[in-house]
């Protein structure tokens, strides 16, 4: 846990800055909004982290999100489908799983680099989303009120539903990664794939599993996205989402070389990723300066993380 000192300090500093900047009457509302965002985007950070821990990368997350949101909207509301959510949701999640399976198979069985496979996915799935939607926004209008209520609207014990969902997923992920054999193998593969192989671990199977989980979580995020925004525009939604997800994971201690990262770290990384744009909005930073501020602040966070880390051991 020592490794996270710098990050936690940075997060606390940002939060204090936020508390100062937000007018007191808006403070509770802003906390709620922020918690909702962290919960929402944490879902894909977890997915990205699973793949990164095995030493892979998934650049297709944003496109999978858009495709699943589009497909979900069509399945739920299109006249020719109009499916019950109990049927539509498993279909969408299953679709995400299939996409991950394809990535995993291409990467392990055909030995293609993950970067290329998922980059191609990034293009293809967005194209598919635009095609099946006829390049139009797809919304759910005022339908599926029950589903929206179940997943999004209203708080549970004062917490946004997205955050509650994330907490549940994070606990499952923590058990999976830190206490189960499956997680142990993902770390071993990321640390030294050959060692894992020589220990008789079916490394391909576990790598595929990580891509399946990542894409399934991305598909789930797509559903959440649809619930929150009521609609998805396949041509422009979800750009850079994979970079936010990857940045959240890496900031939180996942090494891009693989084999490192904790659920707590990922959560903190994601929180920092989303507290920053919130803070710039509170400061009233002009739109054109926003990215400069966020980029510089992230850099500052990375430097603090490095500086506050206990002295590196000799290799």
């Amino acid at each position: 846990m020592k490794k996270l000192t710098g990050l936690i300090v940075f997060l606390v500093v940002l939060y204090i800055a936020l508390a100062i900047a937000v007018p007191s009457q808006g403070f509770a509302l802003n906390n709620y909004n922020l918690a909702e965002r962290i919960g929402q985007y944490g879902v894909i950070s977890l997915g990205a982290a699973l793949v990164i821990i095995t030493g892979g990368i998934d650049l297709s997350i944003g496109s999978v999100v858009v495709l699943s949101a589009t497909a979900c909207a069509i399945l739920l509301t299109d006249k020719s489908f109009g499916l019950d959510p109990m049927l539509a949701l498993p279909l969408v999640l299953g679709g995400g799983a299939v996409i991950g399976l394809i990535h995993g198979l291409l990467i392990t069985k055909m030995n293609l680099p993950p970067f290329m496979v998922t980059l191609c996915g990034l293009f293809i799935y967005r194209g598919v989303a635009r095609t099946i939607s006829g390049n139009m926004s797809k919304g759910i209008g005022n339908q599926c009120i029950e589903l929206r209520h179940f997943l999004y609207e209203g708080d549970i014990f004062g917490l946004p539903r997205f955050l509650v969902i994330y907490i549940i997923l994070a606990i499952i992920a923590a058990i999976f990664l830190h206490f189960s054999v499956y997680g142990r193998y993902l770390y071993a593969i990321g640390g030294n794939e050959k060692a894992a192989k020589y220990s008789g671990i079916a490394t391909d199977k576990y790598k595929i599993l990580s891509y399946v989980l990542c894409s399934t979580l991305a598909a789930f995020f797509g559903i959440l996205f649809l619930m929150k925004n009521n609609a998805v525009t396949p041509s422009s939604d979800g750009f850079f989402l994979e970079l936010y997800a990857i940045a959240g994971a890496v900031l939180g201690g996942c090494s891009l070389r693989g084999g490192e990262g904790t659920v707590i770290g990922i959560t903190i990384g994601t929180a920092i990723m989303w507290i920053l744009p919130n803070l710039t909005n509170m400061w009233g930073v002009p739109s054109e300066l926003e990215f400069i501020v966020i980029g510089s602040a992230l850099l500052l966070g990375a430097i603090m993380d490095e500086k506050l880390r206990p002295a590196a051991k000799n290799a």
Binding site: F179, V181, N192, A195, Y198, G200
Partner: peptide, 28 residues
């Protein structure tokens, strides 16, 4: 040497054949 340097000694010794509990959860 074929060791996962990111894991601890016990994890490496039992890598691939961890003693398990929790049934399908396959906890270590």
């Amino acid at each position: 040497l074929h060791l996962a340097e990111n894991l601890n000694v016990a994890a490496n010794i039992f890598l691939g054949q961890e003693p398990r509990r929790g049934g399908i959860l396959r906890l270590i």
